[in-house]
């Protein structure tokens, strides 16, 4: 072989090595479970060692509530679940919007149910505190699920008793059924009557309300039928029934306890704001003492910092 041929041989060998390395490299990484799947595993195996962080309406301090930018920010912060609100437009699209109308959060006007997707897309979202326009559009459920796919889970609000079918259709189409936690206030019989076996195909997290005098049976009926692995637990006082259920029946069963640190009446005053003003132990720490496995917050960055400092954000703690 002359030099020229050696060069070609060299190139061929180099090419083989590189492509082989590529294949081996891929195999070495294997078909890894995505972060979203691992988050789901954490939710299904509630522990006191990894506290799940759920960010309310995305990180609305950083970007407009319910916007893709607010979701991306949560992904960047390492949040586990984002709670978002969805409503159905006049022409049948689910869009991320908290209020009935678009008035507060966009530069447009009107009820979501009386606007088309095209009309809503022409509006721009405002920042928090009503501070002008952000350039961000109202996202559809489909856009949200494509953004979060593999990265983070979503807790769907406002869809509970009306739009589960429409939402499920989008989740199936985008391959994200395992990314979405539905929630709701209705009892299990109402949900069964309305949605039948669809309830077995979705992840459903019922809400336990202190105002419900029958909340114990409400919980038991869910246990007997759907057997959810998580409950959103709301307690206006320390003596409220849902907190008692969480600390006794749910704990014994190993079901997850989500505490809502947003406002006084949802968590016996142990709010995010209290955490900032009086120290995190007085609020988030107290919720952990009650046995909360997940906290919904308006302060995701600060909460993650607090939990990390306590060694409660060891994401790999499941992999044993």
């Amino acid at each position: 072989m002359d030099t020229h041929q050696y060069k070609i041989m060299g190139l061929v060998i180099w090419f083989l090595v590189v492509s082989l390395h590529g294949v081996v490299g891929q195999e070495a990484h294997g078909p890894e479970t995505s972060r979203a799947e691992q988050i789901l595993q954490h939710l299904k195996n509630p522990s006191e060692d990894y506290i799940v962080v759920i960010s309310h309406r995305g990180d609305w301090r950083y970007a407009p509530e319910n916007s893709l930018m607010a979701i991306q920010r949560c992904i960047d912060l390492g949040v586990d679940v984002i709670e978002l609100d969805f409503r159905l437009t006049k022409d049948g699209h689910l869009v991320a919007m908290h209020d009935y109308t678009v008035d507060r959060t966009t530069n447009g006007k009107g009820k979501v149910s009386e606007l088309t997707l095209e009309e809503i897309k022409s509006f721009r979202l405002k920042n928090a505190a009503g501070v002008r326009y952000s350039g961000q559009q109202v996202p559809t459920l489909e856009e949200v699920m494509l953004l979060v796919k593999g990265k983070i889970m979503v807790n769907l609000d406002k869809t509970e008793s009306k739009w589960v079918r429409e939402a499920y259709e989008v989740l199936q189409r985008t391959g994200t059924v395992g990314h979405a936690i539905f929630k709701g206030n209705d009892d299990v019989k109402t949900m069964r009557d309305k949605y039948g076996s669809l309830m077995d195909s979705i992840i459903y997290m019922p809400k336990l309300w202190p105002e419900n005098p029958d909340v114990k049976n409400f919980h038991q009926d869910y246990e007997d039928d759907l057997d959810p692995f998580y409950y959103e637990t709301i307690f206006d006082t320390e003596d409220a029934e849902p907190l008692y259920i969480a600390k006794t029946i749910m704990k014994k069963k190993g079901d997850g306890f989500l505490a809502i640190a947003l406002w006084d009446e949802l968590c016996a005053g142990r709010t995010d704001e209290k955490a900032l003003l009086e120290g995190p132990d007085s609020a988030w720490g107290w919720l952990l003492e009650q046995g909360a496995n997940a906290i919904m917050t308006d302060r995701p960055e600060e909460l993650i910092g607090y939990l990390s400092g306590k060694g409660l954000r060891n994401f790999d703690s499941l992999k044993e």
């Binding site: 120290g279 995190p280 960055e301 600060e302 607090y306 990390s308 400092g309």
Partner: peptide, 13 residues
């Protein structure tokens, strides 16, 4: 990062 966050929480408190 943890340190900074803790410090800012302490600061706010």
């Amino acid at each position: 990062y943890i340190f900074i966050t803790t410090m800012s929480l302490l600061g706010l408190a």
